[in-house]
Every structure is written in structure tokens, then in C-alpha cells.
Design a binder for these strands. Structure first.
Length: 477
DNA sequence: ATGTGC
């Protein structure tokens, strides 16, 4: 193991102050022995770098899917004190509100017929791939409303039901959105891309519930054994990417202006309450809203296809929940025994609020928030529940699932897309993608196994397993 | 992740 790190128990490790100079708090990460074999020292250094930032509270955290990212590690969580703390685009990531939602159906596998037909239909309806455009081109006014109201805007436009909003983190939109700080360039990228899936590890997957670990909670979440579900994983597309790019530049100068010492230029940041910090937060929230509306529009397309192909009702496909994997938020947490407002950055991490917390759907309040962990292509996905332990240990946070072991370029070299597609098809998983290249890049071997990642957070108690889902068919960009 | 080197 790496020097300067203590193992606390089976799944918890501590990075001692001094691992890098000027750490204000220790680092803490969650890992199993087998995941430790593929741990990148660079990611732990990034975790330690985050611990040097002003106003950081308790720990700089790493989830078991931690890997090297831009400035902050992916699979990282850090909370900052509101007066002395900072906000940083690197702590959120380029794909603002990349997230995932799970939809149920009243169908079983035997009702599906040939999944190939369904997958083809989905592939031809949901725009997929880099730079793809939507059939609906937004007007400037519509984009403005979409950025202010997120999934609520989409539902008002007819892309879903009010019940959907109840099953989204933040009810599907952040009120803090301030579109004054979204550039013209970002808007121009966003206008033609609403309701598109994107590329990379984004996907739309047909899944079967293969195992129920917590029958009572699965029932409350609306999930049952052998049920067919749909998982949608995508983000804010070119708009969020542009917002991140624009504000990084702005915050690089702000870092100097406010005399913040950072060990890595990629940690560019500004005080939370500074003009620059507030501008980034407002634009980030607008991008997050774009992503929620985007997933809501894709949900609508999926429901219409299922209605057409399987003659089921639109309302038979209920939303279990929608979580974000990349966001910064103001939240109230207990710090030193006091309820305190803090700014939590989650980058490749999921909120996992426990029973009784605010912003959990009322009917699920006794059980904790649904947590959705997508697997990599061809591997299991998981439904978990948030816990009180997460509230106490990790500012109500857990893993997000897709932790790379090696880079896209290395994945491409080590695997052929066509072969992976054939192998998955032999296992009964039908993959339809815009190119074999993206299949090679997303090869399951390029990722930490989702089962192992989930097992660690379960053992640590920061979220608990409710159900496992296996892929049947997937579309990718 | 991304109008996929700047």
C-alpha cells in the first residue's frame, strides 16, 4: 500500500495530514482489498490536495470507485464551511449533473419478445452520440425556462407527470439557477441538444431485476423480482461542459485575486460567497437543471416507445428516483454537534440521505433515499438506500458506480469493440452503439467491478443494498 | 464527459 495511509478497518482508510503539504484535514477513503490492487496513487494525491483547500470540513473523502480526474478525484466528496470555504468547478466535473434515473415497467422478460427490436426502436428515437442534435430545437426563451426549472419545465411541456418530480433529487431543479452567468456559447451548444443521450459512459439500458436484498424497501421503492426496468444515464451535454470551461477560466484568476494557495492549478476556486463563486454556482445550477430536463425528455420518449410496442399505459412506467453524480449544493449537516449549512461537492458520488432527511419523497421518508448505482456496460446495476450512517460519516454521500481502471485510449488498445459486442450478445445482452470505438472504450474490463464497489459502501454502511439489476439491452453513443 | 490536440 501507499506510504502515509492508515487502514482503519476492513473498508476504511485514512490519509494522514502531511501526505501532501498543508493539508487542513485528513483524507478518508473506502476500499476493499481487491479494489486496492487497482488504486491509483495519483487519485489519492488528488484526494490529499483537496484537503488543503480553505474551509474544508472533517475529511476529504474518496468513494470505492475513486479514480484520477480533473483536479479533484472522481469518486470524491468534500464539504466546505460557507464563510471561509471555497467552491470549485473541478469538484463538480465537466459533465455538470451527470446523473441516472430508474424507471419501472409492469413487464417481465418473457413479455419483451426479441429485445433487439426494442433496442433498435430506442436507438432510432433517442438521439445518441457526440454532437447529436435533438428533433426539438429549443427557442432562446424555452432554453431559459429549461435552465430555470429543469425537470419541472419538461413536465409542464408534457414530457412526464408531476409524480416524476417527486421522485427526483431536489424535485428535479435547483432554485439557485442564475442564467445571467451562462454564456452565449454555452446556450448555443445547449439549444439543439435537449433530449439527447450523449456519448462515453452515458447509456440507456433495459434491465431485469435479478435479486432483491431488502424486500420491504424494494416494495416501497416500487421494484420487484423479475421486473423489467429502464435505466437512463446522461448529463448536461455541451451546455454543462461549456459552463465548466467558461467558469474555470474565471476562477483561475479569482484564485489569485483572493490569494488562495492551491497545490494544483486544476483546483481553481473562489470563496463560496464571492461574486465569482456565486456566478459559477448559479451557472452550475442552471446546467444541472438542463440535465434534469434532459433526462425527463428521454424518459418521455422511452414511455412512448413502450406504449407503442407493448400496449402498456404511460403511467405504468413509474420513476423510482433520479440522482445526480456531479454537483455542488448547499446542504445542512451536523458539524461538531451543530446543524450547519455547508457546500458539499460531489464528483462521481451520489447523495445518500438517510431516513427522516429533508428532500426525500414523503412516502419514502422512513426508509431513506433511493440510491441508483449504474454498472459499466454489461455488468450489474444496483438500487440502494441512503442511511443515517452516511449522514454522520460522509455528509450523506456514497459511490456512483463507474470507476475507471484504465483510460479510454488504453481500453481502446486492449479491446476490440466488435468482439466485446459479440461476447455480450452470447450472454444475452444486446448492445447498439453509434460506433465500435465507444464499445471498446467502455469495455467492462476498463472499470472497477460495480458489485465490489457496492459491497464496500454496504459494508461501510453509507448506503445499503436493496436490489440488483442485470442488463438485457443497451444503447450507447 | 466534450463541436474528443491548442
Amino acid at each position: 500500500m501507499i506510504e502515509g495511509i492508515d487502514r482503519l478497518n476492513e473498508v476504511e482508510w485514512e490519509v494522514k495530514p502531511g501526505f501532501v503539504p498543508e493539508m487542513r484535514v485528513p483524507g478518508k477513503f473506502f476500499l476493499s482489498d481487491s479494489l486496492a490492487e487497482t488504486l491509483e496513487e495519483g487519485a489519492i494525491k488528488q484526494l490529499a490536495n483537496v484537503a488543503t483547500l480553505p474551509g474544508i470540513l472533517k475529511y476529504s473523502y474518496g468513494m470505492p470507485d475513486i479514480h484520477w480526474g480533473y483536479g479533484f478525484p472522481i469518486g470524491g466528496v468534500a464539504a466546505f464551511e460557507m464563510e471561509t470555504g471555497i467552491i470549485s468547478p473541478g469538484g463538480v466535473g465537466f459533465d455538470i449533473n451527470c446523473g441516472v434515473r430508474l424507471l419501472t415497467t409492469p413487464l417481465k422478460k418473457s413479455d419483451l419478445g426479441k429485445p433487439k427490436r426494442l433496442i433498435n426502436e430506442l436507438f432510432h428515437t433517442v438521439p445518441t452520440g457526440v454532437g447529436t442534435r435533438s428533433e426539438k430545437k429549443l427557442s432562446a426563451d424555452e432554453l431559459e425556462d429549461m435552465m430555470c426549472e429543469g425537470a419541472k419545465w419538461a413536465v409542464n411541456m408534457g414530457y412526464g407527470t408531476p409524480e416524476d418530480l417527486n421522485r427526483c433529487e431536489e424535485k428535479g431543479f435547483m432554485e439557485a439557477a442564475d442564467t445571467d452567468f451562462v454564456s452565449k456559447k454555452a446556450r448555443l451548444r445547449g439549444m439543439p441538444q435537449c433530449g439527447t443521450l450523449g456519448s462515453g459512459n452515458h447509456f440507456l439500458e433495459i434491465q431485469e431485476v435479478s435479486e432483491i436484498m431488502d424486500p420491504e424497501v424494494a416494495d416501497k421503492f416500487g421494484v420487484s423480482k423479475d421486473q423489467i426496468c429502464v435505466m437512463i444515464h446522461c448529463g448536461s451535454r455541451g451546455l454543462g461542459h461549456q459552463v465548466c470551461t467558461d467558469h474555470l477560466k474565471d476562477l483561475e484568476s479569482a484564485t489569485k485575486k483572493y490569494h488562495i494557495n492551491i497545490p494544483d492549478a486544476q483546483l481553481a476556486c473562489a470563496p463560496i460567497k464571492s461574486d465569482e463563486g456565486k456566478a459559477y454556482f448559479g451557472a452550475m445550477a442552471a446546467s444541472a437543471n438542463y440535465a434534469w430536463a434532459n433526462r425527463q425528455m428521454i424518459t418521455h420518449m422511452v414511455r412512448e416507445i413502450f406504449e407503442k410496442v407493448y400496449k402498456i399505459d404511460y403511467s405504468d412506467m413509474k420513476l423510482v428516483y433520479d440522482v445526480t453524480h456531479n454537483v455542488a449544493k448547499y446542504e445542512t449537516h451536523v458539524v461538531n454537534g451543530q446543524k450547519t449549512e455547508v457546500c458539499v461537492h460531489r464528483k462521481g458520488a451520489t447523495r445518500a440521505f438517510g431516513p427522516g432527511c429533508h428532500d426525500i419523497p414523503h412516502e419514502l421518508s422512513d426508509f431513506g433515499q433511493p440510491v441508483i448505482i449504474p454498472g459499466s456496460m454489461g455488468t450489474s446495476s444496483y438500487l440502494l438506500k441512503g442511511t443515517q450512517t452516511a449522514m454522520e460519516k460522509t455528509f450523506g454521500s456514497t459511490c456512483h458506480g463507474s470507476g475507471r481502471i484504465f483510460s479510454r485510449s488504453k481500453a481502446k488498445k486492449s479491446a476490440q469493440g466488435a468482439e466485446i459486442k459479440d461476447e455480450l450478445e452470447k450472454k444475452g445482452i444486446f448492445v447498439k452503439a453509434t460506433s465500435n470505438k465507444v464499445i471498446a472504450e467502455e469495455s467492462p474490463e476498463a472499470y472497477k467491478p460495480s458489485s465490489e464497489v457496492v459491497s464496500v459502501v454496504h459494508k461501510a454502511g453509507i448506503s445499503l443494498e436493496v436490489a440488483r439489476l442485470e442488463p438485457i439491452g443497451v444503447i450507447k453513443g
